[in-house]
């Protein structure tokens, strides 16, 4: 349903440097499927999702690639045509529920404006639908909540309202960019359960951006691991946790506490993600990789298929 090919989003910085925030990303999301993108801060996962929505601001630019949703290449569309797709065929939920809603308009107003634009509803129909949507996402007093302002709701409730906005036009694709990072743990589970409920009901594809492997383990069908603007490993969820291939994925998993083995210290990945305008020449993980070989510093490996579902970008798995 969503197919992204060779997506390149670069940021042109002041001093003639180019930050390759997203570099050759391929991904697909099928209807009813949850695909998770994991990675550290700065790995390019948020930029990938904003590129799909075409909400990249200057100095960023999508320089190459193809993003097709339901068979239409979105990159050929004008900005005006995109406004008919955003919020309608695909919708997005953001990380910060506290600031993602406009403080001066009621919750109802912010839902109905989407319905009135995309579904051409009149004021009354839209309001009735807004109340239904609020009930659907778990507001007990939806009739009152439509007339309330964002500041009257808690963070978790605001994120529910964001979900109501996002699903209001029955989108085919829902992108959630770290939807629970700013919420406390008990609320996180509620919000994620709500999102996967909605996904089932509306048969949406869900693209879940997160750095929380616990969330991935619970909710994802397939996982893409991003590092330095590229996908370094992709696989069905089960394989990834049982049999991680890329040293970076291994590092991420070792840094998780486990109930099965008692460790003195959790594993860490030394160093930091290099800034996107000065990646190493070879493999982008080479400077931090415990298994780095000579050729890792010379050229960047391709993403190679291990079997038809599992792919990894690492010289440890090439023939020669």
């Amino acid at each position: 349903m969503l197919e992204v090919k060779d997506l390149k989003t670069y940021f042109y910085l002041d001093d003639d440097q180019v930050a390759k925030a997203v570099d050759d990303v391929d991904l697909t999301v099928k209807a009813g499927e949850t695909v998770a993108i994991v990675g550290e801060s700065g790995s390019g996962k948020s930029i990938t999702s904003l590129s799909i929505m075409q909400l990249i601001n200057k100095p960023g630019k999508i320089v190459d690639g193809e993003i097709s949703l339901l068979g239409r290449n979105l990159l050929n569309l004008s900005n005006r045509e995109m406004t008919k797709i955003r919020g309608n065929d695909m919708a997005m939920i953001f990380q910060e529920p506290m600031t993602a809603l406009n403080p001066v308009y009621t919750i109802g107003n912010q839902i109905t404006e989407v319905l009135r634009k995309h579904k051409k509803m009149n004021r009354k129909q839209a309001k009735r639908r807004a109340i239904d949507l609020l009930k659907l996402v778990g507001f007990p007093r939806a009739e009152d909540t439509v007339d309330e302002y964002p500041h009257q709701l808690s963070g978790g409730m605001r994120q529910r309202a964001m979900i109501a906005i996002a699903i209001s036009c029955d989108p085919k694709l829902l992108i959630a960019d770290e939807p629970t990072t700013a919420l406390d743990v008990t609320i996180q589970a509620q919000i994620l359960d709500l999102m996967s409920d909605m996904k089932e009901k509306l048969e949406m594809g869900l693209l879940l951006i997160t750095h929380d492997l616990g969330v991935v383990a619970e909710y994802a069908d397939r996982v893409l691991v991003m590092y330095g603007g590229q996908i370094v490993e992709q696989s069905p969820k089960r394989n990834l946790f049982k049999d991680p291939k890329h040293p970076y994925t291994e590092g991420l998993l070792e840094s998780l506490p486990s109930v099965h083995n008692d460790l003195e210290r959790l594993g860490t990945i030394r160093g930091m993600v290099p800034p996107a305008h000065k990646f190493p020449t070879g493999c982008r993980f080479s400077s931090r990789c415990p298994h780095a070989m000579d050729k890792c510093f010379e050229s960047n490996p391709e993403l190679i298929d291990l079997d038809h579902e599992h792919a990894v970008r690492c010289y440890l798995y090439t023939e020669d």
Binding site: M53, M82, T83, R86, N88, A91, F94, E113, I165
Partner: peptide, 9 residues
Amino acid sequence: RTAKAKGMT
């Protein structure tokens, strides 16, 4: 950004 993501012109 939310408003733009909702498809507002």
